[in-house]
């Protein structure tokens, strides 16, 4: 089904949606705070506690929701275009889980304590291993199910190794962390985490967006793309490093959050007329909106239960995944 909506309108709507959700994300919490009060009438108009909470707790949280959601949406859209696989997504393909493993290794070997950037770097190396592995597999066989099943195996393996690392740690609280690394959360993150993730996510996003033209050509088939002068190796490398950088850094500060990269591109694809070059920026905005919404939901539904983000994204994403799987099967049988 094609819905006629000009691309510029769609982008404007998405930007407005992201801004609205960003504002709500800053306002919602233990106490409802109006960020405009602090902004317009100066810091003196609100209590010191409110000011501290707005600037040091809620603002970094909202910024992380925005950039991490954008990274996940964008990398999902790129992977789907590159692998020409509607089910490709960092969470399902085990890229997020491998990034988690990298992050956990950096923390529990003490590397991240010695050098703060060791955390995102180690996480993106974990993500890189996963993407390279998947790309190699997908190169041999473009079969959708092979790739998805490899992702399942990789997720289990990375999860097991993460669990092993946490169990071996002398830190008595380490074992409890497994939930965070597998389901993700933005609770009580700070500007330190923004500073850690932002440069890598920005760089990764630039690389991913650079694949847009090639993905347009690739949607017509590999041979057509080649004849149109698309350098497939370059596109591959851009997508691989772009995904590793953005998903790796995102996972290092938020844990693995699944389904964002799956749901968002699929919802937006009919609205952009199936053009990857339009889909990529739209998916970044859509991912940001989706994750901000999920992060608002975890605070709205069970404010005191510290619900993990992955719970919400999976509640929405898993039924969607089943529906997709059903459709893909029907299509491949034809």
């Amino acid at each position: 089904m094609q819905i006629k909506i000009p691309y510029s309108w769609l982008m404007a709507i998405l930007v407005a949606l992201v801004l609205l959700l960003f504002a709500i994300s800053i306002s919602i919490g233990h106490v409802w705070l109006n960020p405009l009060d602090a902004l317009w009438s100066g810091a003196g108009s609100i209590s010191a506690a409110d000011h501290l909470i707005l600037t040091e707790i809620r603002l970094p949280r909202a910024v992380l929701g925005l950039i991490i959601g954008a990274a996940l949406g964008l990398s999902g859209a790129t992977l789907q275009g590159l692998l020409r696989n509607p089910l490709a997504e960092p969470g399902l393909l085990g890229i997020s889980a491998s990034a988690s493993l990298g992050a956990v290794l950096a923390i529990y070997t003490g590397l991240s304590a010695a050098f703060a950037y060791a955390l995102p770097i180690s996480a993106l190396l974990g993500a890189l291993v996963a993407v390279v592995l998947l790309r190699a597999l997908a190169g041999k066989s473009a079969d959708i199910l092979t790739i998805i099943l490899s992702g399942v195996a990789l997720t289990s393996l990375a999860g097991a190794l993460t669990s092993l690392t946490l169990n071996m740690s002398s830190n008595p609280f380490a074992a409890l962390e497994i939930v965070f690394w597998m389901l993700g959360s933005l609770a009580d993150r700070s500007w330190v985490h923004v500073g850690m993730a932002l440069p890598f996510i920005l760089l990764g996003s630039v690389l991913l967006l650079a694949t847009a033209r090639a993905l347009d050509a690739l949607s017509l088939g590999q041979d057509v793309a080649r004849s149109m002068g698309v350098n497939l190796n370059r596109t591959n490398l851009l997508a691989i490093f772009g995904t590793a950088l953005s998903v790796g850094a995102a996972t290092a500060v938020s844990g693995a959050i699944g389904f964002v990269g799956l749901v968002v591109p699929h919802l937006l694809r009919p609205l952009v007329g199936n053009r990857p070059s339009h889909l990529l920026p739209a998916s970044a905005l859509g991912g940001a909106a989706f994750l901000l919404l999920a992060d608002i939901a975890v605070r709205f539904v069970f404010p005191d239960k510290d619900l993990k983000l992955g719970v919400i994204t999976a509640l929405v994403g898993a039924p969607f995944f089943f529906w997709l799987l059903h459709n893909v099967k029907k299509r491949t049988q034809l």
Binding site: L52, E56, I57, G110, E177
Partner: peptide
């Protein structure tokens, strides 16, 4: 003495400020 996700909250800048 422990570093990790769980104890990271004790190093939050907002906690230090307040």
């Amino acid at each position: 003495q422990y570093t990790g996700r769980a104890t990271e909250i004790l190093l939050h800048p907002a906690l230090d400020r307040w």
